[in-house]
Amino acid sequence: MAWSAIRCDERSVSVLKFIRQLLIIITISFVAELMEYLIPLPIAASMYGLVLMLAGLITKLIPLEKVEGAADFLTEIMPVLFVPPTVSIMANFDALRQMLVPLVVICVVTTVLIMGVTGRVSQAILRRENKRKEKNQT
């Protein structure tokens, strides 16, 4: 009896912890929504929230362990959240048909370019840094 009571207790503590973590994330989402409303820029609320959360974590105002569990849950279920918005292509079928060829061509070509440029530029910077380090050592 006593053992099961302790187990129950632990469980309810972790559930409460999860709710507190969710509260922090939802609070930031709400503040971000207000920012979207008040700041006259075409930027989505989620971006303000993302930057706010990052700032909170870096300044240690929000300790990582106070949001970790709920945040991991939310980021892991994210692919499921994209399903309904994608199904809405049903309502935009004509728009898709109109631009299907440019869409595929642009996606394929630019992906090759972006990957190449990003890789080459960062590789060049890395190699220059390494050379400088070697010079300093000798």
């Binding site: 969710l22 994330i25 939802i26 930031i28 989402s29 971000a32 929504e33 609320a45 989620s46 971006m47 929230g49 993302l50 930057v51 706010l52 959360m53 990052l54 974590l57 870096i58 990582l64 949001v67 970790e68 709920a70 945040a71 991991d72 939310l74 980021t75 279920i77 994210m78 499921v80 959240l81 994209f82 399903v83 309904p84 918005p85 199904v87």
Partner: peptide
């Protein structure tokens, strides 16, 4: 019914800060 799922997109995007912070 599906729109309720999408409501979680904003908090989920906010949570992307955690993997970046790590």
């Amino acid at each position: 019914g599906a729109k309720y799922i999408s409501y979680f997109l904003t908090p989920a995007t906010v949570s992307l800060a955690i993997p970046l912070y790590r």
